[in-house]
Nucleic acid binder design. Structure first.
Lengths: 120, 120
DNA sequence: CCGCATCCAGTTCGATACTG
DNA sequence: CAGTATCGAACTGGATGCGG
């Protein structure tokens, strides 16, 4: 087997799972929503208030996507006015390490950006 | 301080860095490109062959974005035909833990999807 | 053939307004 | 409160072209 072929296989072994993960977590809003729900069950507009700049439309759409992938559970209480509560499922909680690593990288990245801006 | 306010602050501390990270890594293609370059320096069309379904246009655009964020270095060799080599910078390599965690989650997720499809 | 740039179509996203 | 409806802007994808 040639070097390039072996490299190609090794590379694909990493690429496909990451592709699968990105297919579920794509877009700007899904991880922020999950983070919001990591800190407790929330109602629709409560999530909206915690995520800067998200619109109702996007929040509604992304919550539906997350629900379809069983990361988030939606519960409707038949009170008046109607109350809808969103909960992170057990499966949703398995994303905690992912978020933790991204958070650490994001902090380092912000430090780097700030330093660059002050020296240029 | 009320419970909700404290939760809001804690939550934001996690959300902002993740937001910063996502701003750099957004889209379907950036992480696959970085993975490809983790396995060695590559030329334009070599990267294209390793990433299923990516078009030349997207590859070109995403490489430029990554270059601007100093995750990837672009070197042009004045040979005939011209050769352009892409390299992961040291900073680009700091994304390895992020990719590793996403890869692990993606593998588990694929297992889960497969199981569901066979039992439903 | 290599690394793009350009044109055009389809999809997604965002702002605002509105409903039960 | 918890979303929908609508419209325009932005982003994405495919086909094609082009200098070297």
């Amino acid at each position: 087997m040639k070097t390039e072929e072996r490299n190609f296989s090794t590379c694909s072994k990493h690429m496909f799972p990451v592709h699968d993960a990105l297919a579920v977590l794509n877009g700007k809003w899904k991880l922020p929503i999950i983070i919001s729900l990591m800190f407790g069950n929330k109602r629709f507009s409560q999530i909206g208030r915690e995520i800067p700049k998200i619109t109702d439309k996007m929040l509604s759409k992304e919550l539906r996507d997350l629900e379809m992938n069983e990361l988030v559970k939606r519960t409707v209480y038949d009170s008046i006015p109607v109350v809808v509560e969103y909960t992170l499922t057990d499966y949703g909680h398995t994303l905690e390490p992912v978020i933790e690593v991204l958070r650490k990288w994001g902090e380092k990245h912000r430090e780097r950006i700030m330093k660059e801006e002050s020296t240029e």
